[in-house]
Nucleic acid binder design. Structure first.
Lengths: 346, 346
DNA sequence: GTGAAAGCGCTAACAT
DNA sequence: ATGTTAGCGCTTTCAC
């Protein structure tokens, strides 16, 4: 209740100057250890708490990292965020998080809010909408580092943290082909975002690399489980039926898989299916879903670390344009048409 | 690059005083409309951005809400957070989020950081460790409202947002009994946290209300999928085998269910299973898991709204001790021993 | 309708 | 090892 204690109150109480108190509180080396002890005791006694605005106003630093993501309630994203928060917290930074909900307008508003809040650095994963990255260049102008992860801009000066989408898409598709699939389908968003574009190119490259294989794309509005069910209905109408389906995320893949089963299609017998992200559901659905493991936590950790190193003046990451993390195809039941070594794992 | 523009720069440029510029920027009524226009144009021209520290330092407000949760990467929690972020954002508040990782030490550190950062309000879900809620009373002392959700303190002055854990646990257990289960097992944490304690009491009440039923508790270290698998192994050793199992979350329930199936136990034929939270996996696992729908998003929205209304001086929530949201048993396949109307939903 | 002046609480030169 | 001083950028009385 009532007035806040300040360093002046401590200073008065102990007959010291404010600067000595300030130094003592920060653990400055030149301060007599006894003085420090007294200051700390007094601070506790009068319920002093540091006023970060005043401090920020002076130091022009906030110890805060801004994070803007499309949405935070996906399995993948919450892993990324958890990783970032941990690193930030270990290094004395706060994180402020906001969601763009895939709207580039909202994304811009969020960016401006972060800008006015003077975040020390920014971590962004872009919307799938056509992105106006201009709102982020303001940060660069003020020497506030920005890093991107997952959904990154087509070109930027910033460090980006991604996986090799085209390569793993290639691997996934090749795996289907290796399982004797010849009529391949890739279900994805009609988006120019790097992640989808690259998965498409990986898919197409694998199809082209194997004579006798046909590949086509099916675009969906979004990649929810419900969309996946709709996809299954579409698939049932195809002539001939595809025998291998690679879906751009696990939610949609699982929706599709379950609906196909309901319709009497055997998975993987009639149609092999592969998802993307290695969400928990992929290990739960029956048959277990082959998927691409996307190291979300690690991505978050790397992104936050690089940002913080940059803030601490360690420039090593400054010249790194792109950090590619290792994603990997996890083969489970849903794609194994041939009788090979079927691993089981939960 | 370089220096930040301040209101003084604008003032100089236009031959005004800083106070006039400040008023103009805030849309003060007494300012000449022409003056305001000029100020706004100039602000844009010289890339002025308001310095929130200086402003906060003066006004003693931050427009920031702190959120402390055990961890943010669970399905339930990310839904809560998404709801909170939305409400906050709509009302011009930022959210800063931190994880306690179930450590009350970390929780206290986080609380202190939030305290020093002068959050305008705080939203907390407690750790399962014995909670030292003292670190939160500092907020009340300074008239910073704190609300809790899900894991709430045993007693506090704050508004809490919860579901009726004991009631839904009672419902779940009764449902099992209605499905002819007589040997019941409740798998949960040995914790004094309200959520687990109440689920236990609901379970026990239902068992006692039905003569001829036996109930026992099985405590686990945590409620991960792996723990659920361990539970299945324990269950296999029980004599007699339980025929109805109510698990305190879906992760562990699914782990248990799958392992039981591997061991040749029929679910629900031999053992009926019910989980808690209605995570996405509950709809995916086969058989689909009966669970309790916990309205996470709504909980988050309610909590954030109440906090903000409180901050805006609307006291309506101030005297509300507890808001109980509606949770509901969702009956799926895993609990239906008897041939009744089996609903299917994804 | 606008200006002058003080001060929010802290930190960092500079001085001793 | 400690004190003095000035100022970060804004808001807000109080004056005119």
């Amino acid at each position: 209740m009532g007035k806040e204690a300040t360093i002046y109150d401590i200073a008065n109480e102990l007959n010291l100057s404010a600067s000595t108190v300030s130094r003592a509180l920060k653990g400055n080396k030149h301060i007599n250890i006894e003085t420090r002890k007294r200051v700390e005791r007094c601070a506790k006694k009068i319920h002093y708490r540091s006023n970060s605005f005043a401090s920020n106003l002076r130091t022009q630093r906030t110890n805060t990292i801004g994070i803007i993501v499309p949405r935070l309630d996906s399995s993948f994203m919450s892993k990324c965020l958890a990783g970032m928060e941990e690193v930030a917290s270990e290094n004395g930074y706060n994180v402020i998080i906001s969601q763009s909900h895939e709207s580039s307008k909202k994304q811009e508003r969020n960016a401006n809010t972060m800008f006015n809040n003077r975040v020390d650095g920014l971590i962004v994963s872009l919307t799938i909408e056509k992105n106006n990255v201009a709102c982020f260049s303001r940060f660069a102008d003020k020497n506030v580092p920005v890093v991107y992860f997952d959904r990154i801009p087509d070109k930027s000066e910033s460090t980006c943290f991604v996986i090799e989408n085209s390569k793993v898409a290639y691997d996934a598709t090749s795996h289907l082909i290796g399982q004797s699939c010849r009529n391949l389908l890739h279900v994805t968003l009609n988006s120019n975002a790097n992640v989808y574009r690259e998965r498409i190119s990986g898919f197409e490259a694998a199809v082209e690399a194997n004579t006798g294989c046909a590949g086509r794309l099916l675009y969906v509005k979004s990649l929810t489980m419900e969309d996946g069910q709709g996809v299954a209905d579409e698939i049932m109408k195809m002539e001939p039926l595809p025998d291998g389906v690679f879906v751009a995320n696990d939610q949609a893949a699982v929706g599709c898989l379950l609906r196909l089963k309901e319709r009497g299609i055997r998975v993987p017998g009639d149609i092999a299916i592969i998802g993307f992200n290695d969400d928990p559901i992929s290990k739960i659905v029956s048959p277990k879903l082959t998927s691409v493991h996307y190291p979300g936590r690690e991505t978050g950790i790397m992104a936050a670390k690089s940002l913080i190193e940059n803030l601490n003046g360690d420039e090593s990451f400054n010249y790194t344009e792109k950090v590619v993390l290792n994603a990997q195809l996890i083969i489970r039941e849903s794609s194994q048409k041939l009788e090979t070594n079927v691993k089981s794992d939960i």
